[in-house]
Design a protein around this nucleic acid. Structure first.
Lengths: 162, 162
DNA sequence: GCTGAAACAGTCTCCCC
DNA sequence: GGGGAGACTGTTTCAGC
């Protein structure tokens, strides 16, 4: 990390709090951490500029929004050099919310949401498997998500951490 | 959905905006959507009470926080009825940020972060594969994440949506 | 169910230490 | 680099429609 941008325990505490609740007022955070609101603000801006904090999102209930099904799909290409073409095409499918390029048995690993199993089936057969670059796919439907949490930052495993 | 709690286009627009930036002031949202700040506030409270909005998180740069490696691990159990025991044990590993129970070739599919490949290797061999309930694992290291986005809610696929 | 106003609280900047 | 003051802005409640 660039000189003069070391991350300290205060930064980590701010991140830790905002990982639980991104809308938490800086003043409240300041009180919890026994610093002034201005300090929290300055640190937050620094973390955003450094790119450590990339943004924020509300967490929505997928099922209540009508997406009953979540699945992972392993994708094999005929030709690994179609990488960029395939990424571009995958981006155009709204159902796909993550595309990972992976080592191991698949070229890509994608996370997909669908309204129901029929929607997933249509997506897989009519759209994904129609792509000429794709050789084969394997689907894993997520039936339950017993653990879903943020990356732990308590461990001081920080680059540039003093 | 319970009567009297229909979700309308205004609710969806509020969700859509907050999915991009959870810290966006309600007043700004109100101006964008040509309603009063009070209305946005009431709608937000309703969506939280209904559980459609479950919370919010900042998005942090995993790599800058010292987690260089992200991987998916498919897990097979000797005995599917060890489900609960295994979930409990997996919860205790800080490296594991998602545990999915899946159909297909694996009983579980987990998402793991680690400091580096050595950390991942230690986790897999010394800790995960030491669990007696686990028969086998298969690891897919995520080398790149070209797509990472929120579930689309533009499509009116909402339960109870008028 | 929404608006607009009013009281309260938080943001954000800046100057001083 | 942090604290505190101050102007600005947002939050939250509520009477009135």
């Amino acid at each position: 990390m660039a000189a003069g941008h070391e991350i300290d325990e205060l930064d980590l505490n701010i991140i830790r709090i905002l990982q639980q609740d991104a809308r938490r007022p800086f003043q409240e955070i300041a009180r919890d951490l026994s610093v002034s609101g201005g300090t929290v603000h300055v640190r937050y801006n620094k973390l955003r500029e450094l790119g450590i904090i990339k943004g924020s999102r509300i967490i929505v209930d997928m099922q209540m929004l009508g997406f009953e099904v979540c699945a992972f799909v392993g994708i094999n290409l005929h030709n690994a050099r179609d990488y960029n073409i395939v990424v571009q095409k995958l981006k155009d499918f709204d159902e796909i919310i993550e595309v990972h390029s992976t080592t191991g048995a698949y070229n890509f690993f994608i996370k997909v949401v669908a309204k129901n199993t029929r929607g997933l089936h249509n997506f897989l057969t009519d759209r994904l498997q129609e792509m000429p670059e794709i050789q084969s796919t394997e689907t894993f439907i997520s039936l339950d998500l017993p653990v879903d949490r943020e990356i732990p930052i308590d461990k001081n495993q920080i680059i540039g951490y003093a």
